[in-house]
Amino acid sequence: MSSSVEGPEGQIDDLNCNEYDTFVVVSSVLFVLYLSFKAKKNINSLCNGGSNIIISYYALLWIVTLLNLARSLLQAWQCTPGKEVPWNLLSLFTASGMLYLEISLMAFLLNDNYMNAMETLAHTSIVAGIIVFVDTLLKAIYVFGFGVPLFNRSVGTTHMIKWALWIVHKLLLAAAYGFILFVHFSKWKEKLPPRPTFYNYVFIMFIFSTIILFACGVAGIGVGFGNWLYDFTVLCYHSLYLPFLYVTFLADFFQEEDFFLDNAYYSEMKDAGFFDADWE
């Protein structure tokens, strides 16, 4: 299936729509089913003593997961005449939600002053919210104001503005993850939470962001491999990131009914100052 859209300068950009999105649909549906299967037990655990931080992240995870599911089911819109605006809106909201999760988690890792759970939640929400708002506003201006196809795969012609924007975006993310890794291996290591799983997450996201950055750079100079690699990383991101985040940061909290008393994960996080007495 192929179609075309008219760019801001009157040129026609060919969009090559293949069947790659099947894996994204299957993985998104399976993750929603998994969250649904665990929902009753997880909600009971949160009601019995959940931190405001974990409750907020769990709710946000559900919202972003449903947005991602809708995006995966409606990917044909990017190649359907008349559906460009709803596709871009859906993609923009989904990308903003996933970016908010990424930024807020990094803000938690870099916050070395945890007074209590509510203060930590408010601080990280403000920081992440400002960054994501600016990012979303800039993307919206370029997509809806200048017609840059940020969320359309396999643009046939070399669209320098699109790739330049993604290069800057991925460079900033890679730099943020790289900075956390630098701090982790420096003399300031004690300022970060003592949880090895966090740094496995950061390391994987740093490598992933670097690969996407490379793909955008190669695609920007007109190499077809760059387009393929970028499409593949987008597939992986929308298929695997949310389950990866759940397993890394939330799954341990829902392993047992008395997790808030006995779970080692909670103990380490509490020692780092993440949570206050509302867990007791």
Rank of each mutant, 00 (worst) to 15 (best):
I204K: 03
E190Y: 01
F198N: 14
C236N: 04
K139D: 12
F93G: 05
N200H: 07
W166G: 03
V223R: 00
W163G: 12
A107D: 14
R195T: 14
K191L: 13
F108R: 04
I211D: 06
A215F: 01
A164V: 04
T120M: 02
N200C: 05
M205F: 11
F225C: 00
L181G: 07
S91T: 12
D231G: 10
L110D: 04
A107G: 11
I103A: 06
K162R: 15
F108H: 08
T157E: 09
F182Q: 08
H159C: 09
A95T: 10
F144Y: 07
D135A: 14
L101M: 10
D112P: 00
A215D: 06
W228P: 03
A122V: 08
I126R: 03
T233A: 07
A107S: 15
S104D: 09
L173C: 09
G145A: 02
P196I: 08
F144D: 14
T94P: 04
Y177D: 06
L99A: 13
S209C: 11
R195H: 07
I167C: 14
A176Y: 09
L110C: 08
L110T: 10
G224R: 02
I141K: 02
S186N: 07
K187R: 11
L171P: 05
A95M: 03
M205V: 09
G220D: 09
S186R: 01
L105D: 06
W228F: 13
L92E: 07
S154A: 10
N116A: 05
A107L: 07
E102V: 08
C216I: 04
E119N: 13
G129S: 09
G217E: 05
N152V: 12
G129C: 05
A174Y: 04
